[in-house]
């Protein structure tokens, strides 16, 4: 990729508010990889929480705002599979601006796929001496196909693993149920609270029983849910976003 291309940093609203370090890591990582990155200050939310709750029609203005904010960039990169999936596949169609919207949708990438598919970097040198479990977010995995899905008869791949696995000292944990949902699910986390929590506990247990030291995820929403349960139950396992890990480990 030409270094002169302009990359717009798209930070999910809850990451902006709750997990600034994930955003900072994404910014620094992309800069280390040679990108010309900037963060358009006017961005807000992509509209996903409303759309998944059944109010897609009420996100037209939000979607319009997103398109205007990111119009001038060559690439739009986001450390969340879920938000990217929404912008690409679920955002309501803006009437009269279909081509404009399509053009922008095609420029939106989740962080790991941007690194492996656009920057074409498959081998990042670094050290990360930890035993890690990876939590694939469903929207990233089955929505954006960032990893093969266990239901399909297809060659096994995982873009995050591709980037992490070669770090010196990193031990990759194989889970019993390798891509089961953690139970976050947006408003599902509160409307189906009992199920959501049970699914989270089960997911955590899979990692803990395999002696994972850190759970790495590509979506902070899943991690917020899992870490919230672990913290309440005084489970010592740690959590990181993949941007933080890549940014820390990279040489």
């Amino acid at each position: 990729m030409s270094i002169n291309k302009k990359v717009g940093l798209f930070i999910p609203c809850y990451v902006d508010q709750f997990y600034p370090n994930v955003a900072i890591s994404t910014l620094e990582l992309l800069q280390k990889l040679g990108c010309n990155v900037s963060y358009p200050m006017n961005q807000t939310c992509c509209g996903q929480p409303m759309a998944n709750a059944g109010y897609e029609r009420d996100t037209v203005a939000t979607t319009q705002h997103f398109l205007d904010t990111f119009e001038s960039f060559d690439y739009i990169v986001c450390p969340s599979g879920s938000c990217v999936h929404h912008v690409r596949d679920h955002a309501p169609c803006i009437e009269g601006k279909e081509t404009f919207q399509k053009d922008i949708q095609h420029k939106v990438y989740e962080l790991t796929e941007f690194i492996t598919d656009i920057l074409k970097i498959t081998d990042i040198k670094g050290t990360y001496p930890h035993r890690v479990g990876f939590h694939s977010s469903c929207h990233g995995q089955r929505g954006l196909r960032l990893a093969s899905s266990s239901e399909l008869n297809q060659p096994v791949f995982n873009k995050a693993k591709q980037l992490l696995a070669k770090f010196e000292g990193l031990e990759w944990v194989e889970l019993s149920r390798k891509d089961e949902c953690c139970g976050f699910g947006g408003t599902f986390a509160v409307t189906e609270e009992a199920l959501s929590v049970q699914m989270g506990k089960d997911r955590l247990q899979d990692h803990i029983s395999k002696d994972a030291e850190i759970i790495i995820g590509g979506d902070m929403s899943c991690i917020m849910h899992l870490s919230g349960i672990a913290s309440r139950n005084k489970q010592a396992i740690k959590f990181k976003h993949i941007a933080e890990v890549l940014n820390e480990a990279i040489i």
Binding site: C138, H139, R142, G143, D179, C181, G185, F188, L195
Partner: peptide, 10 residues
């Protein structure tokens, strides 16, 4: 709404 839209069913 009894779903996280995880997509495993599809």
């Amino acid at each position: 709404f009894a779903s996280t839209l995880c997509g495993s069913c599809s």
